[in-house]
Amino acid sequence: MLLEYPADFHVHTCLSPCASDDMTPINILNMAKLMGTKVLGICDHNSAGNIKAVLEIAQDFDILVIPGIEVQSVEEVHLLCLFEKENQVLEFQDYVYSALPPISNNPRYFGYQWLVDGKGNILGEENRMLLASTFLTVDEISQKVHELKGLLIPAHVDRRHFSIIGQLGFIPENLKIDAVEFSRATTKAELKATFDKINNHTLITSSDAHCLQDMVYQKTFLLLKSLNFKEVTMALRCVEGRRVLIRD
């Protein structure tokens, strides 16, 4: 039997300089629990520095955390890169770090990049400037993500800035992607009316939460047989009855 699982694939932690300091693992998990979110993607900008802490604390919750990174490509496109396991996202992080410009973050302009434990105790600060473009093209990122058996989802495609459509005009036909995310500023109907051929892709919408109250935007639901990464992948691919429902 297939059951409906509320999903939010795109939540930032306090590691992202633009995110609120109270986006600690325990706060995020508790907020997800309040909202009934069962599939929770954690994607900080160009880093998976808080993933270990989130996965640890998630063991106390009946929530599937999908570890990920929101990468910024050389074309200034934001891409959600999601993986099943911690070691996969960390390998991907090495790839991303090797392609970041050697610039340090300045918290005065961009905000703090806190590395924390599950309870939100500060362990340190990430010094790399995470709000930067990597040297990686969207094609290189797609190839690496799929090599590591991950999922690639262009983020907030309806926005003018940092979206694949904004930067590249349209979604390249030969680019391998697993779904397309639209922001909470629009609806599925509006998106389909605005962008030709968008319906060729599985559509999801996420909170892109940078603070706890952003997490109330719960509009994506997955029809799954059970709660695991493989089932989520099947839903994005519309396999054997698994699928994505949008209620907006």
């Binding site: 003018r160 904004g166 590249l168």
Partner: peptide, 8 residues
């Protein structure tokens, strides 16, 4: 311009 949507 480098924004393709804008160029279009």
């Amino acid at each position: 311009s480098d924004l393709l949507s804008w160029v279009m």
